Computed example of a mutant assay.
Amino acid sequence: MFDIGWSELLIIAAVAIIFVGPKDLPRMMRTIGRYVTKVRSMAREFQSSFEDLARETELDELRKEVTGLRDAATAPLKKLQQEIDKPVKIGGGGAGAAAAAAASEARAAEIAAGEPPETDEISPEMQEALREAKAVEAFGVSDPGRDDK
């Protein structure tokens, strides 16, 4: 580190003995040892904090990469969920049009048979549509979009 050889160490020891004296030399060496220990511990702490910072930076990059991969993997599922959640018009096509039409026909058959439809699991919008269908039947029109005249 400092490239100090044995000859330089002997010169430093001789100068220390001359200026400090042999009596105070052990106390001075202990003090120097304490300072060296403090400097080494500070250097070790600095190095460990620097390594922690590097790890955190790598972890942040990894988190961003994982988030990007997760978003890319779930994007088709989100689009599918949006398609499923779209309202379906009966007769208007779409993935659930046939199922909705069959359910509507089953409810219409229940109404025609005089049985009250089960409204426990029907959404408020569907209940409103049933009320409108009853009102249309009361006027004698079978399909509100078609004129029977």
Rank of each mutant, 00 (worst) to 15 (best):
P116R: 11
G5N: 02
I4Y: 04
T31I: 03
E83M: 05
G33D: 06
R34D: 15
M126C: 12
W6Y: 13
E137N: 14
Q82R: 02
A99Y: 10
A72T: 12
P22S: 13
S123F: 03
A13W: 00
P124L: 14
D24E: 10
T74V: 09
T67N: 01
D24T: 05
E51Q: 07
R27S: 02
W6A: 12
L130Q: 11
S104P: 04
A43R: 03
E83I: 06
E105N: 14
M42N: 07
K79Y: 08
W6E: 10
S41F: 04
F46K: 14
L25V: 09
P22M: 08
M126W: 10
E121Y: 07
V136T: 14
K64Q: 01
D52T: 05
Q81L: 12
E105P: 05
I12R: 10
S49Q: 10
E105D: 06
R63Y: 00
E8M: 07
G5D: 04
M1T: 03
S41V: 04
Y35C: 01
D60Y: 00
G5Y: 03
P87T: 06
K89E: 15
T67A: 00
E110I: 07
R44Y: 10
S142Q: 13
K149D: 09
A101S: 01
G68R: 00
I111D: 11
M126P: 04
V88I: 06
A103Y: 01
I32H: 02
K89H: 11
Q127W: 14
G93E: 11
A75E: 13
A108G: 15
A98T: 15
G140E: 14
A108F: 13
E56I: 05
L9Y: 01
R131L: 08
I12C: 04
E45A: 05
V15P: 02
D71Y: 05
